[in-house]
Simulated scan of single mutants.
Amino acid sequence: MGTVERDEREEALRRVVVGVTGTPGNLAALHRAAAEARVRGAELLAVLAWQSPGGELGSRHSLGPSALAHCRAAAVERLRETLDTAFGAVKPGVALEGLTVRGTPGAALVDVARDTEDLLVVGTGSRTLVRRLVRPSVARYCLAHASCPVLAVPPSPLKAELEAVHRRNAWRVPLDLRELTP
């Protein structure tokens, strides 16, 4: 293998692609992707997929170019806010690039991470029965269709605890103080 080919191969190894949703549960995937990028000496590419209201069919008939530009601008702002929330003043320690892509999340991520040397990181999210019926799993789509390795990151255990607190508050169940002591 020549020097030029080796340099090109090393460049190809230096990209970790992570799906970004803007939800608090996605922070675990973002932080894991940043850690993987640091270990590999790779660039971190945060991708947020967006769709126009009504999907592609709705955008063909009812939305003009200015409405689509507004949707794209909203996606860019959401990506910026998500990365600020995830990393704040403490940057991830690797080269970070953000990208918004118009399309369904799974297909957009698989398309961006099309090189076999990329690493695609996705969050598994909460998969309640209702969510499975309403929204397909992006992680499953990526695992089935990606041409590169896929790392599926489960939600933080703290997320489950937070959801339990929210349910208890919604049902107005009093807090048992014995739960607070170790």
Rank of each mutant, 00 (worst) to 15 (best):
G2Q: 10
E11L: 13
L13E: 05
V17I: 12
T21G: 04
T21W: 06
G22I: 13
T23S: 11
P24S: 14
G25I: 12
G25S: 09
L27A: 07
L27F: 04
H31V: 12
H31S: 06
R32M: 11
A33T: 09
A35S: 09
E36W: 05
G41R: 07
L45N: 02
L45D: 01
A49E: 02
G55L: 13
E56C: 07
E56Y: 09
L57V: 15
L57E: 10
H61K: 11
L63K: 04
S66H: 09
S66P: 00
A67D: 09
L68R: 08
A69C: 04
H70S: 09
A74E: 09
A75W: 04
L79H: 00
A89I: 13
A95E: 09
E97T: 14
G98W: 07
R102Q: 10
P105Y: 08
A107R: 12
A107H: 07
A108T: 06
V110K: 04
V110Y: 02
D111T: 15
D111S: 15
V112M: 06
D115M: 08
D118Q: 09
L119Y: 00
L120D: 01
G123V: 12
L129Y: 08
L129V: 12
P136M: 15
V138C: 01
A139S: 05
Y141L: 11
C142F: 03
L143N: 03
A144I: 13
H145E: 10
C148D: 03
P149V: 14
A152F: 00
V153S: 07
P154H: 11
P155R: 15
K159G: 03
A160Y: 05
E161R: 13
E163R: 13
H166F: 09
R167L: 14
R167F: 08
R168K: 14
A170Q: 15
A170K: 15
W171C: 15
L175E: 08
R178M: 01
